[in-house]
Design a protein around this nucleic acid. Sequence first.
RNA 1: GCUUCUGUAGCUUAAUUGGAUAAAGCACCAGAUUGCGGAUCUGGAGAGUAUAGGUUCGAAUCCUAUCAGAAGCACCA
Length: 549
Amino acid sequence: MEKDLLSKKIQNLIYKKYKILETVEISIPKEDSFGDYSSNIILKLNSKYDIDKNELFEYLSKNLEHYKIEAVNFFLNIFINDNSIIDYLRGNKPEIKKRSEKVLVEYSSPNIAKPFSVSHATTTIIGDSIYRIYKYLKYEVTNDNHIGDWGVQFGKLIYAINNWGDYSIIEKDPINELNKLYIKFHKEEEKNPELTIKAKELYKKLSENDKAIISQWEKIIKWSMDNFNNVYDLLEIKFENTLGESFYANMAKQIINNALEKKIATKENGAVVIYTDPNKKPLIIEKSDGTTLYSTHDLATIEYRAQKLKENIIIYEIGSDQKNIIEQMFKAAELLNLYDKNKTQLILISHGIIKLSGGEKFSTRKGNIIKLEEIIDESFKRAKGLLEERGIDNEDSVKKIAIGAIKFNILKRHYSSDIIFEWNKLLDFNGDTSVYIQYTYVRCNSIIQKSTNLDSQKDISISNEQEQNLARLLYKFNDYVDSAKLSPNILVDYLLTVCKRYNFIYSKYPILKEKDQNIKYTRILLTKNVQETIKTGLNLLGINVVKKM
RNA sequence: GCUUCUGUAGCUUAAUUGGAUAAAGCACCAGAUUGCGGAUCUGGAGAGUAUAGGUUCGAAUCCUAUCAGAAGCACCA
């Protein structure tokens, strides 16, 4: 990224003169007048090493080539020069260099036999955008859907099926029927604790590879995966890997033995536990009945990803209700030396939870969830209605607008805050929305189509400040994408700003009817660049552009 | 009780992680089109960031206390 290059350049210059090695932070100021990039390095060096502010500025402005520099309040304001911008508009875009880091993004991770609910929308949509962004930035990236396909809940389910279920009924609508059985189990369990023991026994059989149980388990998995895949198809999300917990289950024993051998784990009340923090209760890695649980599987997952796959960055996109547990698990992994901290970095992105208006959590057990499919249906209905009002009947557009709105409304906010569920919030089509961006794209498209016979030999003539500022913003696309790596909302904000600036120019200045040929050519070129930027930008959010709307 | 997170215009959210005048959308008010898709554009009014202190050139962001809300807290994930 240009930002990084600039940072290194300045760092080198400073080292040359002062023999000080200091990281130079480059940021993009909010005001155009403060430059394209800015740095507080003068203030920093001044307070840290007592270096004369004026002298440093003089030195940098003389020696930093290719940029115009100003110092305002001793902020270093750096401007891209006009030739670079013109080059960019003409299509000479800098190539992104391949990164050697291996990255794995884990997201979505629904639990088998439970409906795919709105709560899963967050991790699925944010995680997918992060994955796409890393790919665009040319990291060696892969994604993994860490399905919850192992654990005592299968004992519960199989018990419920065998005692109250009927295969012929379940097969007609597996997800709903299984969910009913799951809820029923929890109700009955409250009255009759015997059931807990029965479920544990069944899970134990499963983990001992009992053939009959395994075949039931496989059936349940298939039903669920078919349902999940429908949702993923609608959302156009594809996983390179779908290694569920079961994949790691047989590696778990070794971890437990290791932990005991190294005396990092101890036996307590029959269970094997690891103390990660004096203030916290220990992490259980083996239950007293000898079976494993999520924490063991997840530890095995870390080891596998770090040692076998040799991932350098592992990103977990998980709900904030699991934050404490995941962090504790990270710590345990460190204690057990399951990964090398110098080679592998674990990043936890814990997003806010979607809740009901009273602040209550959606819960499968309580049966008060809203399925993501219901949301998608509703979005289709609304999108269709809006298009119909305008006399357009186009299934493809309906889908792109409907899905785009859901994704956009989740991606536009910072992931950390909780969302109180409201239909209008998730399916907003007015104002700062995907629809606005898609509309701007259609506008650009229309202009481009009407502007045939473009003479690319024309000079570029940027005739006003607004065009200049738009061009500068377009130029920094890659920088914005880079900073949106772990929070796509930065990219959302960027795209909205591009559209606002373009729409302003569109309404104020003629494009196709402009008489000055150079200015006309420039405006068309700007339009083309806006169009391309919107297309790649939305794609990184997992949203499609629309041809007609 | 312990641990963690959150608190920003009437509402929904931003603020590149310590920077420059706290930024948008919705709603409200006033305006723009003989121009390329009006699902558009311009302007106005509206907060000094829960409260009180502190740290420093500089705080919504860090520290302390208080208030309010949420999540997790051993064999579920």
